[in-house]
Design a protein around this nucleic acid. Structure first.
Lengths: 191, 191
DNA sequence: ACCTGAACACCGTTCAAGT
DNA sequence: ACCTGAACACCGTTCAAGT
């Protein structure tokens, strides 16, 4: 039971975030939703930011810990599917996406570990694509950063409305991810 | 004099934002810094968000309205310089960057116009690079979106600490921009 | 037309106290 | 070890009033 209150607080905070944005996530509302007083959260988290970091960490771990695609798919398809999944996650859960990549003053362990794990999985996918000659050669961490930066930027611009203005001649974040992979085929590593 | 109070409020709000993040931008602090009462802002802006939108609009217009590089430089260098400038702006003024691409509930005209202008300038630079055979063929708006998404994502990931963890084998946002342009040379439009 | 001061309903956080 | 209720210093916003 001692753990369930903590979990309930995280769960209710995430629910309030989705429903009403960060402004709706007050400790009073979280406590009320979890059936405790408005300052019970202080027995489980240092402060409000610490609670939000727990929400972000749980979300990032969940997102990047999804199914590793079909295990024997083409490596480049695996990488593409992973990035499409990333974009889809951002567009479906904009508040969780923004929270995850938001401002963190006192670095949180839970969130940091989740971020490191997510990057490691992506780097492995890039290495496999490179080994199959389907991605540019070079430091796999750097190629992974390139791919992630594009997917992240496309998603963030789309969410903030800075990507498309009129419907004409514009691209969805998924389209932009595909465009990058088309560029990859132009500079394949023949090895 | 009637206009100067409004301008002073925008100016002081931007200063407070840079100094202490969005939490430091309270209408009371803005009013105090501008030498007016804490609710004088309501005579110039509908609410706090409207004031922040004015800050963001001014900032975006200033950023994208910079010098158009050397006028007779290679088109691809012009495009590259523009994106490097974008990244440098984001890293030097993280709070303004995040504000500009933040949450806007009631769409603001000033900010919308600034965003449209910025995109238009970028599309022109892409068209020039395409005409010189230095950028991939296709809808210039879509190629511009690809380039902007990468620069934006690289900057945002760097700011949130999700780009590099250890110093080893990682890339700066500027490096990632360069990497994209290297991919461009692999799929040049021969026209 | 622009500004002020008091007031209202909120919020994060602290603290003494309870089991 | 976990929780409560009162309290404190804030905040955005509204409103009646002043020039």
């Amino acid at each position: 039971m001692t753990e369930s209150t903590r979990e309930a607080l995280i769960f209710e905070a995430a629910k309030l975030l989705d429903a009403g944005g960060p402004a709706a996530v007050t400790l009073r509302a979280v406590g009320r939703a979890a059936g405790v007083s408005h300052n019970a959260p202080y027995k489980h988290f240092a402060d409000k930011e610490d609670l939000l970091a727990a929400v972000a960490g749980r979300e990032l771990a969940r997102q990047s810990g999804g199914p590793p695609s079909a295990p024997n798919a083409d490596p480049i398809d695996d990488l593409k599917a992973r990035m499409h999944g990333y974009v889809r996650w951002a567009l479906r859960h904009p508040e969780r996406f923004r929270l995850t990549f938001g401002r963190w003053t006192h670095a949180n362990d839970e969130l940091g570990v989740a971020a490191t794990d997510a990057r490691a999985g992506l780097v492995e996918a890039v290495k496999a694509a490179q080994a199959a000659g389907q991605a540019p050669a070079g430091d796999p961490e750097r190629v992974a950063a390139l791919v992630l930066a594009l997917a992240h930027g496309a998603a963030d611009l789309a969410l903030s409305g800075h990507l498309a203005r009129d419907g004409k001649g514009n691209a969805s974040p998924e389209d932009l991810v595909d465009d990058l992979f088309v560029l990859f085929t132009g500079s394949r590593n023949p090895g």
